[in-house]
Amino acid sequence: MRHIGFAALLILLAQTAGALELEESRRYEVADPQSELRVLSTADVEVFEPIILAFQQENPATTVQYDVASSSEVMRGLYEEGAAYDIALSSAMDLQIKLANDGLALSYSSAATESLPGWATWHDQVFAFTQEPTVLVISKAALEGVPVPRSRSALIELLRTRPDIFDSRIGTYDVRTSGAGYLFATQDSRNTENFWQLTEVMGRLNARLYCCSGQMIRDVGDGRLAIAYNVLGSYAQSRLADTPGIEIVEMDDYVSVMLRSALIPVTARSADESGRMIDFLATLSARPDLVAQTGLPAVVPLRPNEAPERRPIRLGPGLLVFLDKMRRETFLRSWVSSMEQR
């Protein structure tokens, strides 16, 4: 009995020392397993499950282990813990680029990855497979009789003139804790002159800060929030059916398009094994059924002059800039002082 207890303690120690903080974990067994694909992802199991099942239909001898963690945990696990995974899927483009830039990803190239548009891959190591715009989610009830803001200036104007509606009822990411929120905020700060003004206005109206898009959408649906800024459009879209009170607004002036991307960590068993999943994801646009089931819009080539306000965030070392320790400190300091100006 003592031995068993000792062993249990050891296992527990081992797990807490190296282990990642997983939010969810699911194993997709097959009848006659020949190989195993360990996936570390930031996407919820229920969102991603159709893709895994479809992948297993094409690769019936591959067991898939699907672990879900936050983007910062994914980064920490791969960067610091050396966690063994065959593929890492993340919405945090900057962290994916940092992993690849710092030499923690394997190169992979195939006809499928070659067919991706140039802006959707970097260094044959980071492969975007979805393009998800950030949107404004509004509560129809709260904004009844009020014009729907289509641009950031219109939003600032609306927030200023109607504190009665918006006080304590604005939701946005807490950029200190959310990787995706930090990415969107820094991109906004680069792309629109109104960003800091908007942050100040939100701070004055006691905006509520969130870790994730899901919660924000839920709170808008509940009527707790009148408006949620910089929500992932794909999540909002998938919640639209069971959350009747919300409306999705895409801005006219500028829309950050986040690219969910995959990479093969250096801890992968073999780049070619992992490559089959990369190929499957890179050709997601050929599976409209999966796009519909998951609500994840596949990467499609941009046509010139088509929706110039929708700009995919550029994959590349530029994303490292806001990961710079000092730059991040400076940015967060400004953001906090704008947001918490009581």
Binding site: A100, N101, D102, G103, W122, H123, D124, R190, R314, G316, P317, G318, L320, V321, D324, M326, R327, T330
Partner: peptide, 17 residues
Amino acid sequence: ELPYSAITMLSTVSEDR
């Protein structure tokens, strides 16, 4: 304050680390 352009100017032509 690390200038954005300092890094992007290096990645305009190639996908170098």
